[in-house]
């Protein structure tokens, strides 16, 4: 079968110790037997490794931060599209999803396809809305409340027992054992990711995750459960292994079918010693460990692109259990000329 030539733009090229999913998604697309991709990297920083990984990324453009507003970003995308004729755009950061979802229609008019959750799906799974989400869909979630100031917590302190988890709206989570620690983590996270901060009941157990893809009509195109076998001090998985867990898969199917989830997602779950599953988070995009799913037999990045192109994708029916990943760091030697080009011209 002849491969379809597609130009795919994607972000998340920060393949660092807390990696974005851009490079793993790209690896999945490079492995595809159906797509012959031209990968356009969208970088926010001159030192993201992705732009210099020429065997994976064909061309990189710097883009403005989402916090600069929708218009500057769209203007830049328009410029890149004029040059590259983007077929599909895959935003890989939580923090940029809102902007791209808001711009979905404009992008479509430009001829750029995306495959993102709807605004309703995106909003209702927010960490601050998790209790309501759990209640609506009949899923165990730890009790949580958003707070706008540290004194807000004083008003709801009775509802919690220590330790509690202090979480940022996009990233970061810390376990706090007393009020003083909540204050420290509140300020630390708020300074980086803004408000609100979410205080969540601490559920003791093992963290397990599922990467999945919904077609927007309630069907799960693929889902692979995993347990992190090595976790860095930032809480990131530096190793993982695919699991055989029908209960986790059933939960994933339930969430996707009830929400008609569209796009990639990562479910973060805690399995207690009583074997109960609590959902602690839904990340509305493919995670950085998505290449494990590809290696286990489910090329979810490829499926996502085909769905974005309006093509029929049959759901995956199996994956390899016991497939492992071990992340590693690697000192890539880069030419100063390339750094100069990305820094000054915004293109590489």
């Amino acid at each position: 079968m002849e491969k379809i030539k597609l130009t795919i733009a994607l972000s998340g090229l920060n393949n660092i110790d807390s990696p974005g999913p851009g490079i793993p998604v790209t690896r999945g697309l490079r492995d595809s037997l159906k797509i012959d991709p031209k990968i356009i990297g969208l970088a926010y920083d001159n030192l993201e490794p992705g732009p210099y990984m020429h065997e994976l990324i064909d061309k990189t453009y710097k883009v403005p931060y989402p916090s600069d507003g929708i218009e500057p970003l769209l203007e830049r995308i328009r410029y890149i599209h004029e040059k590259e004729h983007i077929d599909v755009l895959i935003p890989n950061f939580d923090s940029e999803l809102f902007t791209f979802m808001k711009s979905e229609k404009i992008l479509k008019e430009m001829g750029i396809r995306t495959f993102l959750p709807t605004m309703q799906q995106f909003e209702e799974r927010h960490k601050s809305n998790l209790p309501q989400f759990g209640e609506k869909y009949g899923i165990n979630v730890p009790y949580s409340e958003p707070i706008g100031s540290i004194m807000d917590f004083r008003k709801i302190e009775d509802k919690f027992e220590y330790p509690v988890v202090v979480k940022g709206k996009f990233y970061d989570a810390y376990i706090a054992y007393d009020f003083e620690q909540i204050g420290i983590y509140f300020n630390k996270i708020a300074a980086k990711w803004g408000l609100p901060i979410v205080i969540q009941e601490f559920v003791k157990g093992t963290e397990v995750n599922v990467v999945a893809l919904g077609d927007g009509n309630g069907n799960t195109i693929g889902a692979v459960p995993m347990r992190k076998t090595y976790i860095t001090d930032k809480g990131k998985g530096w190793g993982g292994i695919t699991l055989e867990d029908p209960v986790m898969l059933e939960l994933t199917h339930k969430i996707i079918s009830q929400t008609n989830w569209r796009g990639g997602m990562e479910l973060e779950l805690i399995r207690t010693s009583d074997n109960e599953l609590y959902m602690i988070e839904i990340n509305p995009r493919l995670p950085a460990w998505v290449y494990l799913a590809v290696a286990a037999g489910q090329n979810l990045p490829e499926a996502l692109v085909l769905l974005a192109m309006g093509m029929e994708v049959k759901p995956f029916t199996h994956y390899d259990v016991g497939k492992m990943f071990i992340r590693y760091s690697y000192d890539m030697i880069c030419d100063l000329k390339e750094f100069e080009q990305l820094s000054t011209k915004g293109e590489l």
Partner: peptide
């Protein structure tokens, strides 16, 4: 039933990893 045991003595529980 799902526990895999190899001849080398390596035991793998696919449910927990």
């Amino acid at each position: 039933k799902n526990i895999a045991i190899s001849d080398s003595g390596f035991v793998f529980d696919p449910g927990t990893g």
